[in-house]
Design a protein around this nucleic acid. Structure first.
Lengths: 224, 224
DNA sequence: ATTACTAGTAAGCGAGTAT
DNA sequence: TATACTCGCTTACTAGTAA
């Protein structure tokens, strides 16, 4: 999607063309977007061709309305900005499923961990963790998980060893709710470990390397 | 402001660069914005030059943080989208002050109008109206004023004639609160008439042709 | 009036590469 | 590893103008 088309669509939307048809000439639009009449005309042609706007021609000017498809593009932009400014309480990651070494199962089956998961997260995790390697570039967001609103799972001793404290956040992977599990003093790797009441690989039909979207909820319960 | 710079800034912000410094290479950014490494590099240079981001160079990659100025630009975009999607209850107009023919004073001084303004709008209008000619292109928004949430001032008879019903909306001109007055069956002209408790030309230091911003509140009281 | 084509010019792009 | 320069190519611009 070309940036100048988004900009133009936005300007048209600002004039009310999502709810209503608006009457506008290419020259008027040109003023709004700081271009020539010819460029505005070309943009309108492009938007029309891409089915982002509908056009009717009166005797003068044109009657324009943004299509559902056009609205979607603007909504997508809007959501981005919401994430930037409003969402200190949600973080989005994109990543790919990878296989762990099976230790996930060993840990989640430790009865003391299990008990705490039930008490503090409110669900009994399916044995094992789903490991997701987040896109390298997204690792910048990991620092947001230093957030102190984490749910703390306390350390304990069993089997003659110590199982370390773990920090959790409610999270959603694709459509399924669960939690992210972070070892207390992991130096943030690129791997996120996800637990959930159900067997995710089956439920979400996941194979290694499949792309998944993760939403982490920094505070409180999962909402909709 | 070139729109591709805004979109690039947005991508950087999505990675958390408003609150924190983030580490990113031009190549990584290139992936995010779907361009070549060279283009991403160029964009970063431009953003830096325009003081929208700060950059530090590590041994590898660069440490980036969005400046206050950069944040402002993103906020401005965000507000635009809010207007598009959230604001069925506010409409913004830009226009220029023009002189009326003095009839505004005659009408606002009619005791029955005056009484209703006090009762229904909650203030006693300064005699006269401030007339604002809205930008031609913005006239598309006028249909939003057909909205049925208007405050209706009833018609009445006096001086051997009938004074027609009038529709009002709470509104703000620059920083001053008041209301917009619309004759019931005006075929929307490009002129908005504004009333307020104070003498606006003085308070806002307005001369003919000065540009003003008008916010019309479609429902309820003026908020902040 | 207004739209949009043509054509010449300017801006933007990315492969190659120096640093 | 990186960043960012040069340069040839492509895309996008606007003035002029036909419809």
């Amino acid at each position: 999607m070309k940036y100048y088309l988004i900009l133009t669509l936005k300007e048209i939307a600002l004039l009310g063309a999502i709810e209503n048809k608006i009457e506008i000439s290419s020259d008027e639009l040109a003023n709004k977007i700081n271009s020539s009449q010819q460029t505005a005309s070309r943009y309108l042609l492009e938007l029309d061709k891409k089915n982002l706007i509908n056009r009717e021609f009166g005797i003068k000017k044109q009657i324009i309305r943004i299509t559902t498809e056009g609205k979607k593009i603007l909504e997508h932009e809007y959501v981005d900005f919401e994430r930037i400014f409003n969402l200190s309480d949600k973080i989005y990651f994109k990543g790919n499923v990878i296989s762990g070494l099976g230790e996930g199962r060993y840990y989640t089956e430790q009865s003391s961990y299990k008990k705490q998961f039930i008490d503090k997260l409110g669900f009994k995790p399916y044995p094992g963790t789903l490991n997701v390697k987040i896109e390298y570039i997204e690792k910048n967001k990991l620092r947001l998980l230093k957030d102190n609103r984490a749910i703390i799972i306390d350390e304990f001793k069993a089997d003659n060893r110590t199982f370390g404290s773990v920090r959790c956040f409610y999270a959603r992977i694709n459509d399924i709710d669960g939690a992210i599990v972070l070892p207390l003093r992991s130096h943030y790797s690129q791997i996120l470990e996800f637990i959930s009441p159900t067997y995710l690989r089956e439920k979400l039909n996941l194979k290694d390397d499949d792309e998944v979207n993760i939403t982490i909820f920094l505070k409180g319960k999962i909402e909709d």
